[in-house]
């Protein structure tokens, strides 16, 4: 497996896209730190990168990469190599390179300017969302043979989790605003990794004081050990479930 990962990794580095992505993150992060002297506020601005940019880049890049690797995958499948190994190697290589790009691009300036433990949480959320959206990209890729269609599905995933889902959530809150919704919404939040990461981040920052009763309830729940473990667990499910499903489809896919 490591041999195959190595070859894919090498192939990804050749395209230079990952280097561009790293450079983009580096420049944006450094610019934010330069513009604002308060690290807490920079972390807040970086939250947008974590919640929007990292998932979008991850899912689009991973989908395109998967299609560009079709020849390689085909070649490997004619060799005495396990299908799952090929699939997971592809995932590993893509996910690791995207995560490294994110950690280098956002983490190094943070280390340099000092962002503390909230910075660490931010990095964690960014890495997890990268993994989640890479998984979703692989799912989109095995759902169809058509590259354009797959990119469409990938973008739809991104759009759904970044925007459409929140619209539905707002609708639920509006429709049932006469009922106590805290418990319901916290489970609804768990159904969207972007929202979950966002809430975890908001609660880490002291601006959660502005979130009133709902904020206090979430802080109580997610701040407890059980809540923290549960939220990390749910995020991991979001990484594993789409990937496992995609692997299942891939193992029966004709090439």
């Amino acid at each position: 497996m490591t041999r195959i990962v190595k070859y894919i990794f090498y192939d990804i580095l050749r395209t230079r896209f990952i280097l561009l992505y790293t450079a983009f993150l580096l420049v944006s992060t450094i610019a934010l730190f330069q513009l604002d002297s308060d690290p807490g506020k920079v972390v807040m601005s970086l939250l947008n990168i974590v919640l929007m940019v990292a998932p979008l880049i991850s899912i689009v890049f991973a989908t395109i990469h998967f299609y560009n690797s079709y020849e390689f995958i085909e070649l490997m499948l004619a060799q005495p190599v396990n299908r799952s190994v090929i699939f997971l190697s592809e995932y590993m290589a893509v996910a690791v390179s995207l995560c490294l790009a994110f950690i280098a691009g956002v983490g190094i300036p943070m280390l340099f300017y000092g962002a503390g433990s909230t910075g660490f949480t931010l990095l964690f959320c960014g890495v997890v969302l990268t993994l989640v959206f890479t998984s979703l990209a692989f799912l989109a890729s095995v759902l169809t043979r058509d590259k354009a269609k797959a990119i469409g599905i990938a973008l739809l995933f991104w759009f759904y989790f970044s925007l459409i889902y929140d619209g539905l959530l707002l609708w639920v809150v509006y429709t049932f605003s006469d009922y106590p919704l805290e418990k319901v919404t916290i489970s609804l939040i768990a159904l969207n990794p972007v929202d979950l990461a966002r809430i975890i981040m908001l609660l880490r920052l002291d601006i959660s004081a502005l979130m009133g009763y709902t904020g206090a309830f979430y802080k109580d729940f997610l701040g407890s050990n059980a809540g923290a473990i549960a939220s990390v667990g749910i995020l991991l499910v979001w990484v594993i479930a789409p990937l496992a499903w995609a692997r299942q489809i891939f193992s029966k896919k004709d090439l």
């Binding site: 807040m44 939250l47 947008n48 919640l51 929007m52 970044s162 925007l163 929140d166 619209g167 959530l169 707002l170 809150v173 509006y174 605003s177 919704l181 805290e182 919404t185 939040i189 972007v194 929202d195 966002r198 809430i199 908001l202 502005l210 979130m211 009133g212 009763y213 709902t214 904020g215 979430y218």
Partner: peptide
């Protein structure tokens, strides 16, 4: 305004939708 009307909507704070 939305948050004043429905305090629970605060959970969408900082989202793309908002």
């Amino acid at each position: 305004m939305i948050v004043e009307e429905m305090p629970t909507a605060v959970l969408l704070w900082r989202s793309f939708l908002v």
